[in-house]
Structure formats: structure tokens, C-alpha cells
Design a protein around this nucleic acid. Structure first.
Lengths: 240, 240
DNA sequence: CGTCAGTTTGAGCGAGCTCAACGTGAGTGG
DNA sequence: CCACTCACGTTGAGCTCGCTCAAACTGACG
């Protein structure tokens, strides 16, 4: 059963070449020799328990991270102590790039459930980017994608109603599941209602009520964190 | 008067080595030989009139831009046609990095007043980044800074009141003026009330009322677009 | 079986929105 | 030089969506 072992996302021994997620976190046009070079600098961590921090805001920036399994949230804490969730990270996604600017992380990153992450020391990545131009390009693109994602969220917060915000988040999760060859219509939300509300600039109560309304309109079936999307067209219409 | 001409920000002939803004847009630790290399790829454009586009959303991404003089806003247009201002760019600041992700700009960029910008073809910049590692590092940092800026705005929109948002924007403009050796307490807002409201997720009326209240509390003196900050401590307390 | 975190539901309130009117100043043409 | 326009900004009145506060429910875990 060694081939199954190699594909299990919790297995710390699996290398980038065999990792299920490599189509998501690596540039497509990478030769196997180059993948091997990358493999050498990537540190595959042991699985982290729920609520364990990967790093804390203020810590020295050393690495960016890729989610191998489970899910992670990033959040900042403002001067007056309140939390702002800035992102949810699913398998195959990269996080930690906010730390590059000032050599310290501005976010904290926390496992929302048992999760495994790959650590990629940034100084080694920079060196390797000089040898492998497509890797440099890839990281510029990843960071740019993070910028456009954040700008979508800005628009969402600035212009959209509670229902539109929740619908947009659900479609985002759905699409990211599809990318991972999972169902886009039946999935489990890894985050709490509080995290959803915090991320979307809403209170827990409002999130709960929106889920309630969506169920009454036969848009969704919600059972705790399990979601089934019943009407994508209406959901997309809402999310616009 | 040739030395004065060289320093005039509208002068299209001035090169990076002599540009007043180079401490802001270039890495500090660049040797003069390296500055010269950069100079060769930077295209200094003629001054643009107010309301002229530098690029439009959807256009093929070719270059990032640096503001030499004047000011620029970035904005996206959502499916339903409404505008979201995503950033204001003052002299010495770089914009256009949102286009890297998908090879097309996701924002449009517009001169808010007569402005001059430097165009930096991104493919040439990538090549040069391989030869000059500190330039690669610098651009990673610039993009990361854009990410943390956007995340600050997310927090602002998600958690803060109208007064807090306006106070934060005023302090941001003030600080960016200080960086340019200009007054942090007396300055001209380059953008309209509508742009401020759009950026901060507020209506024009609300922005106007907040300015009114700030004046009544002797926080500011406002005369059209001219701002004088009278009480930085209170303003900072509001912005938190 | 009790506890406790997470979630749902209800009732009332308020910050900021909408709509409408009015003010201001720069530009234009008679 | 005045009259007109038009974009921009201010001010007022009323409404609404999402917040606040409070209570009840659920299920996991000791």
C-alpha cells in the first residue's frame, strides 16, 4: 500500500513531486530537476492540532507556508485588541506573504482543525527564484493574486449586503473545493460562524440569520458546518 | 538653472539617479551602476491631464508604474457596474501590481490631477531582478506592503465607524506627505469627497458630515480640499 | 448528568443610508 | 459683465439593515 501512503496528505514523508497539491502550489511548467531543488528547501511539518499557531503576529518572518491538509486562518489584532480574520487557507494554498514587507509577520496563522503545512524558508526561495525564473514569476503571481483577493474582499465589505457577503464566501469555498477535485455543492465549512462573521464584517447573529433565510429560500441545506448548495444560479445572482 | 530643471518632477528627462522620489520607490542599497541599469528600462512619460487613464481594467498587463508627480487613483468596476476605489497613489508610490496575477489589470488607474508617471515594463524588471537580487527583494517587499495595506483597509471597513475611517485616511495622507518632506499638518486632498466615500465604504453625505463634526470639535480646519490638522492626538485616538 | 462553547432566535435601537433641497464656484456663452 | 450651467459639496428628515443585548437551544466532552 505504499502508493496510498505516498498520497496521504498527512504523510510527512511525501515530497513535492508526489504531493497531490503540487498542481496548486507549484508553477505548472517546472521540470522534475527543478521540483527536486524545491523539495530540498521545503520543510514538511508534522500535523498540527486544532488551534495551534503556525506563527504569531510580530514574530520574525522566515518562511512562507503551504497548506497540505486541513485548514488555516490568518488574522490580525488591532491596537484596541479586536481580531480581524484576513483569510482562510485551504489545501494547496500559500500563506505568510504578509511578513515579507517588514521582516515580521503582521498576521497570526492558526490551524482551524488538524492540519499539515509545508514551510518554505523565504531566503532559500529567493535564491532559488534567481536560478529558476518561472519560480520567481510564480511567486510574483501568487502575491499579486493575494492583492486582488484582498481587493475583492474590500469591495465586498464596502458595497455589499450581509446576504451578498455570505453568498460570495460560500461560492469562494465551493470553487476552491472544485480546484481540489472535491464536490463544489456539498462540503464542510472548516471555520466557525464567528470566524465567518469576523471575516465578512458581520456579527455571528447576522451570519446565523442569513443561513436561516438561505435555507428558507431553498438555496442551501445547512447542517452545522455541512453545506449543500441547492441552487447555484440564485446563489451566484446574489453574489453578483 | 539646469540643476533646478533636473529636480522638477514634471521634467521627463530626469533619470532615476537624480529623481527626488528615488528614496521612496527604489531599494536603498542600490549601487549607481545598478541604478543606471534600471534607468535604461524605465520609461518616463509625458505629464497626463486630470481624468486621463493610465490603464484600464482588462487591458493586458505590461508594466508597473511609479508616480513622479500629481496623484492617481486605482479602482475596480464590479459586475453590476459600481465602482470601488482601491487605492490612492502619491508621488514615490508604485501601482499596477494587481495585473501580475492574471496578465491583465484588474484595476483601472486614473490621474486625479495633472500627473506624471514612470512606466516600468515588468518583463524587463523580472530579468533585472535576477541580476540584482536586492531589486527582487525590493519588489517582493513592495507587493507584500500592498497586501498589508489592503488588509488594514479590510479591518477598517469591517470594524470601524465612519469617523474612525475618515480619521485613519487623513493620518495616512499626512504620513505619506511627511515621507515626501512635505507638511504633515497642512495639505491638499487630491481626491473628491465622492472618492473618499467610495474608498472608505461611506456615502458622500456621511463624509461631508464627518468633516463637519471634526471641524466643530476643533480637530481640523477644512477649506474645500485644503486640510489643516489642529489636533493630532485626538485624530490618532480616533483612528486608533 | 453537568458544563461550556458554539449557534440560533427574538426584540429593540441606532449609525449611516436614501432622498431631496440648497449652496458654491468654475467655466461658458450671450 | 451678467446669466446660465454643471459638477461638487453641504445640510436636513426619515428609514432600514445590521447591531446589541438577552435568552434559549444543541451537542461534545468530562
Amino acid at each position: 500500500m505504499s502508493s496510498m501512503d505516498a498520497k496521504c496528505p498527512h504523510n510527512t514523508e511525501v515530497n513535492c513531486g508526489d504531493c497531490r497539491m503540487n498542481a496548486l502550489c507549484l508553477p505548472l511548467a517546472l521540470q522534475s530537476k527543478e521540483v527536486a531543488q524545491l523539495d530540498e528547501i521545503v520543510q514538511r511539518g508534522r500535523p498540527l492540532q486544532k488551534d495551534r499557531h503556525i506563527y504569531n503576529a510580530g514574530e520574525e518572518f522566515k518562511s512562507v507556508f503551504a497548506v497540505r491538509s486541513g485548514s488555516v486562518k490568518s488574522y490580525t489584532v488591532s491596537n484596541d485588541g479586536q481580531e480581524q480574520v484576513t483569510g482562510f487557507h485551504l489545501p494547496g494554498e500559500i500563506f505568510g506573504m504578509d511578513g515579507i514587507a517588514h521582516n515580521h509577520y503582521t498576521n497570526s496563522a492558526l490551524a482551524m482543525e488538524t492540519a499539515a503545512v509545508c514551510e518554505i524558508p523565504f531566503s532559500r526561495l529567493q535564491e532559488l527564484s534567481i536560478a529558476i525564473p518561472s519560480l520567481q514569476r510564480h511567486f510574483f503571481q501568487l502575491m499579486s493574486k493575494e492583492i486582488t483577493n484582498d481587493q475583492h474582499l474590500i469591495t465586498l465589505l464596502s458595497k455589499n449586503s450581509a446576504e451578498e457577503r455570505v453568498a460570495t464566501l460560500l461560492l469562494s469555498i465551493s470553487n476552491r473545493n472544485l480546484r481540489r477535485q472535491l464536490s463544489g455543492s456539498r462540503f464542510r465549512l472548516p471555520m466557525s460562524r464567528a470566524d465567518i462573521g469576523n471575516y465578512l464584517g458581520l456579527t455571528v447573529e447576522t451570519v446565523s440569520r442569513v443561513f436561516g433565510r438561505f435555507q428558507k429560500q431553498d438555496l442551501l441545506r445547512v447542517d452545522k458546518k455541512e453545506i449543500e448548495v441547492l441552487d447555484f444560479d440564485k446563489l451566484r445572482a446574489l453574489a453578483n
